[in-house]
Amino acid sequence: MDNHVIVKIKKIEQECSDIKTFWFEQELNASPGQFVMVWLPGIDEKPFTLSSIGNESAISVQKRGIFTEKMHKLKEGDEFGVRGPFGHGFHFGKTTKPLLVGGGCGNANLTALAEMLAEHGKKPAYVLGARTADLLPYEKRLEKISDLYITTDDGSKGEKGFTTQKVEELLGKEGFDCVFACGPEVMLVPLLEVCKKKGIECQFSLERFMKCAVGLCGECCINGKLVCVEGPVFDKKHLEQLTELGKFARTKSGKLVDLGEYSKGNKC
């Protein structure tokens, strides 16, 4: 689907204090981890991974800037444009004992993955993390289909601490064969270290500023890789080569800046 299709919002769910899920009737033939470009005419166009896949699709939107605030004001019956799906999703065919690790809005595509794994009879373990209890999304959906472990930075729900601590503990006890993760890079970098230390395979979904989504403009590159077509999901072998991970990203102008400056400027 090269061009935008205008879809009608069928249902809106408030997942947690800052994330809403928008359900729309459009079969996208996507796999978990793939993304769509979401268009609000006159406002902007931004990439979002699919938080549900099937006859009905869904995206989840965290409120953090002009575009996402407009999204949060939409009502059921309102419309927006989508094109996609784009990129490579998670490769989950070979895993028999998966461990999923999500931080904040990074849980969107992992929840879609968890549902897909459960459908295929591979109930995953899931470490769901957020800063505080009111920022935890998808808890109800995940309870039903996964062995769910919750961590919050402040201990307001589940175990106090970071997802990586819980992951280290779980990897020591059980024979997982792959870690699937999405979340802030400050979480992904130590998680990659844990996976390297334990010698376990992993796949992380990454995010960079995006324009074309089809591998032409090069704006979304991390090191020499194009996140839009070669990602957004990368496996361990490639992740280990990404020296910019957790450190640098490119702004709209193409300028390479440190990740803090990038996040400040990229207030979707």
Binding site: D2, N3, K211, S253
Partner: peptide
């Protein structure tokens, strides 16, 4: 000097 370019959508394939 640094230029941000135009806002999205900026690149769209067509038929």
């Amino acid at each position: 000097v640094e230029r941000e370019g135009n806002p999205n959508p900026t690149v769209v394939p067509w038929e």
